[in-house]
Amino acid sequence: MADLSIKIHDILFKNPVLTASGTCGFGKEIQDFVNLESLGGVVMKGTTLNPREGNSYPRMAETPSGMLNAVGLQNKGVDNFVRNIYPGIKDIDTHFIVNVNGSTIEEYIAVTERINELEKIPAIELNISCPNVKEGGMAFGVSCPAAEAVVKAVRKVYNKTLIVKLSPNITSITEIAKVCEAQGADSVSLINTLLGMAVDAEKRKPVLSTVTGGLSGPAVKPIALRMVWQVHNAVKIPIIGMGGIMNATDAIEFILAGASAVQIGTGIFKDPDIFEKTISGIESYLDRHKLHSISELIGKLQM
């Protein structure tokens, strides 16, 4: 059987399929459907220093081949994570990664420092790309100086694997990726959701309470693939690709475009068995193509 394991910095993932932040809770929430130990990793929902209530309802709009969300990082804060969530996940045999958020650099640092104390969390995903919060969030991910400052500051206090999650709502994603690499990021993950909007024509009102929200699902896949490909050609650090992955073929496409691993988010809303199917589908793809290891495929798009 082909070898599905991949390496990101110094972490060995048993396979390249991870959950995307904000779509699988802290992992426990999907255990009825998914054997967490079969996953490459679990990127948990966005965590901030203080608890956040998120935005008001309605927070979701279905769109062609996707959806808009405006959850706005609802979470109970990092203390709650350390005290109540971590003890329940630390002995599960997969890599749990915390998605770190903040409205100021100080907040990013404070959350990171708390997570750094946790032995069984091998990495953080620094979210500088959330489009659904008023302050901070995406603001850090759409300007090179801001991204530079936050990555640099977090790198100083964090010595484990640092993944930076990039925003697609930007003219040149490669510039930001290069800045992250230069500041010591070990990996970049992309893409976060695309800023979008939905209108209810009958009511003549925006559907979302926040008017705009983040688009995800198959609708964004071509953009996500393009960005992964561009970033792959711009930086040397490994890339975690995501955006609209619904099956093994989609995952392989991202890997060919340059991703070392992938995350699946919105896809689980439609099909809770998506992880199992994707992992076994990648396996059979490798067998069918007589490949021994998934790493042989990374960035191997034939031009």
Partner: peptide, 12 residues
């Protein structure tokens, strides 16, 4: 709802 099983936080 988007997921229906408690992970997306859209239905609050």
């Amino acid at each position: 709802m988007a997921c229906g099983f408690g992970v997306c936080l859209c239905c609050v």
